[in-house]
Design a protein around this nucleic acid. Structure first.
Lengths: 248, 248
DNA sequence: TCGATATTGATTATTTTTGAACAAATTAAA
DNA sequence: TTTAATTTGTTCAAAAATAATCAATATCGA
């Protein structure tokens, strides 16, 4: 049993189980513990794994930034229901826009096995989908650390080069008076996404329906459908005005 | 039993079993161990197998060629020295291009505290710098999972919108005959970077100097400076031709 | 046939790999 | 916090594999 073979076995096991134990590994391969330890140290030096006391852990080069996960973690059950419904709207071969909202981010887990093309300005979405079946197109431009996403004029022009079949977007609020955003950057890119997709879905939980925020940037007719867990009366109005409402 | 015949047998066995053992092989073919060893070394030199202690393993064409982590981890000490020297070339307020090479990636750790703007097509670079003092500009376009980076026409056009003060790039090889790349995608984007920066630095360890790879994509005059740990004679020639050589 | 070249094998020195022993460092438990 | 157990790094030694050198054999072209 040479080093290369052991290296293969170790990395394979790491990939499957996420971690390995020196004692256990030594027994399995019928080889001394110190040899395994040396192997792990070498692999760790090569950046192929993280060394721990008594073993090693898998290294994932592209981990989702923690601050983003935390934000996305609010209202999880509602958001997951919404995203599952959104995923149902996506078909094989679709080209979809995804923006940098926390709800939209959670959509990733439901579309990893779909053969579609995703065009996005959200780096966490890129991380989440970067080794999935999804083909990715990244929107270029200035990176906004706060939103973990790309915004600005260049980004808008990038979007304008494409035509997507569907767009899945977030917003800070929606009411009969229009769509609301927290910043001009988000407003601009949302408009660009909507303008260049055939059908625009707004993903928002009940806290956003009827809410009117800092900046009104468009009429509610900008979007074609709302996917939400809300039962608000405002929805009935929007529905009457021609907006498709998909409840979850 | 001549070499050709043994080569056939060895490669066939590798294909079936995945690995061969010198002792075992010598016995089977009734031939001395050193001959088998010589055979394996020659085949390894041709890239037909991986040499191990006491034998050889099959090369997996799907693995390795661009596996980012694997590459980034090779020759770490040399690369870190090169990157430290590269970081010394960067001043407050600079606007720099960084490509998706494994050496360039290691530059990140040395520039996190600099107030500069980085324009890059490499997602690992984005991840590494996303909460640092560095202001990021992400190059848009189709994401290539193998290289963890964005390439293609759209990316090139994106680059053309900017003018950087310095570009830090990698290459698969450089010699008096020109610059060499592993793929057209990499070649194109390297040229775009170089064309739109005032000064272009090539970061490469000694394994790349004098090497001529798969695709020649430009004359060596495309770059202005080389940062390397190599002492090769080829460097003296490049220096005489006007390329700045920064040794580490 | 002869000589030049390439291939193979034997021998020896060097390097690499592996394991054992023990002190130092780290983690877990009291 | 102190103590006990575990893990780790270091040093050394044995075994295995390798490279280097040289001699023997085979192959090829003239």
């Amino acid at each position: 049993m040479n080093f290369q073979r052991r290296k293969q076995i170790i990395l394979e096991k790491l990939n499957i189980k996420g971690e390995v134990d020196i004692k256990q590994m030594a027994q399995e391969l019928d080889i001394s513990e110190i040899t395994i330890r040396r192997d792990l140290n070498q692999l760790a030096g090569d950046g192929l794994l993280y060394r721990t006391h008594g073993g090693a852990m898998k290294v994932d080069p592209l981990q989702v930034p923690h601050d983003f996960i935390n934000k996305a973690a609010k209202n999880v059950e509602a958001k997951d229901k919404i995203c599952r419904a959104a995923a149902n709207q996506i078909n094989h071969g679709d080209i979809i826009f995804m923006d940098c909202g926390s709800t939209v981010f959670r959509l990733c887990q439901f579309i990893k096995n779909k053969k579609i093309k995703v065009i996005t300005n959200s780096i966490p979405v890129v991380y989440e989908l970067h080794n999935s079946l999804v083909s990715l197109n990244i929107i270029g431009g200035e990176f906004d650390a706060e939103r973990q996403a790309v915004h600005g004029r260049i980004a808008n022009e990038h979007i304008a080069r494409y035509k997507a079949s569907k767009a899945f977007l977030g917003a800070d609020g929606i009411s009969r008076n229009g769509l609301f955003a927290n910043s001009e950057l988000e407003a601009d890119i949302t408009q660009a996404f909507a303008a260049h997709s055939e059908k625009t879905f707004l993903l928002c939980d009940d806290s956003k329906i009827g809410k009117e925020g800092y900046l009104k940037f468009a009429e509610f007719t900008l979007i074609n459908a709302i996917i939400t867990n809300s039962k608000s009366d405002e929805l009935a109005y929007l529905k009457k005005q021609g907006v498709e409402v998909i409840g979850v």
